[in-house]
Nucleic acid binder design. Structure first.
Lengths: 191, 191
DNA sequence: AGTCAAAGTGACACTTGTGTCATTAATAAA
DNA sequence: TTTATTAATGACACAAGTGTCACTTTGACT
């Protein structure tokens, strides 16, 4: 028994995502967002107290989606199969790298709602890393991964590869295959 | 026959560097810089028209320093020796990754001085990559590097490793050694 | 047709950063 | 000591973002 909404949360998150990814956290403003949505700036304040609140809610939404997919990956194969599945998955969701970086750009002095989201986001982050870490452990048990390499470096290196800029526009298939190969076997020829 | 300056360009660049690396391009302001230097904001405008001009000059200064060191690396050894030298060098100058990113954050619509600096910076960037690329070619000729991997991916992957966050504070030596090993031989055990 | 709760708007006051410039301060040279 | 010259300052006007709120609009339900 009220007026119809001009936009849904999903539409808002979609615009938020493109604006955040194109311009970054600092250049993200309610003015720009409102203009994309073709809505007045004031109306967004009806639903989110400020930029940090909106962004932290958006990040929760994105992380949930990502983790849902991550958790649904087939856990039945041997290490190598699972490892390759994970790599393919993270490359299909390469925005996750930027998302994770934005989490740390939200100032800590924010409202309660934001703080609690930040805590939750860090938990998600850690959980994801823990899951990946247990995959690494499996790899070490199966004697596929070298045991003298620390989990931290394997994890860091794997996730960092998402952000390598593909300046020359090498096709995604070749790109991912090469990265997978280098991570596994290195760039040096075997003698 | 005039008043003494309260600060040198070197001091300004030093403060610029820490401010840029701690807070990033967007949060960098003349107010903050002036407060670090304990000088009025107006006095900085005596030497630099605006933030973009100062930052682009600073980047030129940093890139020159970096490239000077890069060029002075011993070119006499075989591929592997040189490759390891380069990796050690870029890890000793790990800020270079952030520096390179900041280059692309300066808006394109700026003044002539800035535009010409941008052009020059991109030239430097390309030159550095070209040099590294010729090292890769050498590696391929010496049959150390797999020939089916594109130069772009080897270059990208190598430079990207600088930015892997060392969350767990693994000692630098072990860190660099592990990365070098993974790049060369991969993380998988040889059978 | 009338009601009214929620949605949307735009003007207002405030904050932070920018760039300028008239004024003041320091100091080497005359 | 005076002077010429450059360094530094802080006040001013302007631009862009923020958060608020009284007011208007819409449309489902009487």
């Amino acid at each position: 028994m009220a007026r119809e909404r001009k936009f849904t949360d999903d539409e808002l998150f979609k615009a938020t995502k493109s604006l955040l990814i194109e311009e970054g956290y600092d250049a993200f403003t309610f003015s720009k967002l409102a203009s994309i949505m073709e809505v007045s700036r004031g109306s967004i304040y009806k639903y989110y107290e400020n930029k940090d609140e909106l962004i932290s809610e958006f990040l929760m939404y994105e992380m949930n989606l990502f983790l849902k997919g991550f958790n649904e990956l087939d856990k039945s194969g041997d290490f190598q199969t699972q490892f390759y599945l994970v790599i393919d998955f993270i490359f299909q969701h390469s925005e996750i790298h930027q998302i994770l970086e934005i989490i740390n750009q939200i100032p800590k002095k924010s409202s309660n709602r934001v703080s609690s989201n930040q805590t939750q986001l860090n938990t998600y982050h850690t959980d994801m890393y823990k899951q990946f870490q247990s995959l690494i452990e499996q790899g070490k048990k199966e004697r596929v991964i070298k045991s003298h390499l620390s989990d931290a470096i394997i994890l860091g290196m794997t996730f960092q590869t998402i952000a390598i800029p593909n300046h020359f526009g090498i096709p995604q298939d070749e790109w991912v295959a090469s990265i997978r190969e280098i991570l596994s076997e290195g760039m040096f020829q075997r003698e």
